[in-house]
Design a protein around this nucleic acid. Structure first.
Lengths: 209, 209
DNA sequence: GTAGCTATGTAACAAATGTTACATGAAATT
DNA sequence: AATTTCATGTAACATTTGTTACATAGCTAC
């Protein structure tokens, strides 16, 4: 409950907070766990209390692409979107760090939309944020070259995990950026020569945040 | 009014249709005209009656990228999004064909959200559609090669203009796809050899729709 | 018709990204 | 300690995309 108030207290009226606390289901998720799988029907929406979630897209061949990260105080708008459309999830959500969240049944979502103006505001604001994040994702893949994308990826990752030391393998990065391991290793080496990062085995230190 | 009923009659209750008709401002826009410019503050949202609108993104250097087309029965959700966030437009909207639309003042938008459940449904559904279109745009630039993107672009363009004969110059296509004219000409020639399209001066016929 | 403009075609080359193959070195397993 | 597995480095090459330069062909204006 303190977690709830800390993250959403300034947004929602007390009554709504109480309802969320009563109805919502508190959940802990371990780093790396899959929260939503592509094709899942969505029955509840998550309110993020802490930690970060990575949103991924997949093509027909099963190749991945990381779109953006979601942080505390956010919700997965794609979830809302899918509830409304009553359709399957188009994305995969993976816990980037250990995560605490509250699951809200979808019926409540539209009920609260009419009952609480702060909730309506929150939902619309969420859509806005996610739209902006989608646009940023588009900018990144459309306008940046791979070395710039790579650096941005590392910085974003460091930001959401509040840690400039990243526990990652080149192979994983390649998967998130939808490129090959060799390309990633090559560009990482260049970034290290340019003093933007420092490379270790299973670990990368981001210097210029 | 008939236009309004034809496009939105099955969505909205009569009372809402009446309000839209009374409050909305009917507008005609010529092909090529800019409806929304990047950085504009949005004071009203458009409901599309017929025609199609092209949504574009721009990078820092002023380079463009076409994201998707909006057709009749749709609205520009980015507009909503910007109203909510009270922020400037992040995209440019250009009339792809001659367009008829109704402009709704933004205050009405949130007022109707509470008053008419069909309006709330419509807005959320719009957000969903636009999210899906953004995802498709991401898929396109992330997973497709330029020749596939080019063919998809031509097909989409033919679809929304209901015409397999496109009045376009290679230069314009290059701008929309964020590549160079030479690349477009080269790939178009290949598509013609593969019998997907037929090339003329100032005109392209899309064969395999 | 001719001059000039615009759109398109194409060659030659450059840069970015993707692929294959293999070497090295650290960690884990036996 | 020897063996195996995994992460990383790197060379060599292929493919895709971008760039520069120029030729040709159709249209417009005079």
């Amino acid at each position: 409950m303190e977690d709830l108030i800390e993250n959403y207290g300034y947004l929602f009226e007390d009554e709504l907070l109480k309802e969320i606390h009563e109805i919502g289901i508190y959940k802990s998720v371990k780093e790396g766990d899959v929260l939503i799988e592509i094709g899942d029907y969505i029955k509840s929406m998550p309110l993020l209390l802490n930690g970060a979630i990575k949103i991924l897209r997949e093509d027909k061949e099963g190749e991945e692409l990381a779109l953006y990260f979601i942080e505390r105080g956010d919700t997965c708008t794609m979830t809302l979107s899918c509830c409304v459309g009553n359709s399957k999830s188009e994305i995969r959500a993976v816990a980037e760090t250990d995560v605490h969240l509250i699951m809200i049944p979808v019926q409540k979502m539209s009920e609260w939309m009419r009952k609480y103006s702060s909730w309506q505001e929150f939902i619309l604001q969420s859509y806005h944020s996610r739209m902006m994040e989608m646009l940023e994702a588009i900018d990144t893949i459309a306008f940046l070259k791979m070395d710039e994308r790579l650096l941005k990826y590392l910085r974003d990752k460091a930001m959401v995990s509040h840690n400039d030391q990243l526990q990652v393998k080149h192979k994983d990065i390649a998967q998130d950026l939808h490129t090959s391991r060799v390309v990633v290793s090559r560009l990482l080496k260049k970034l290290e020569r340019d003093n933007k990062i420092k490379l270790f085995r299973n670990r990368i230190k981001v210097i210029a945040l």
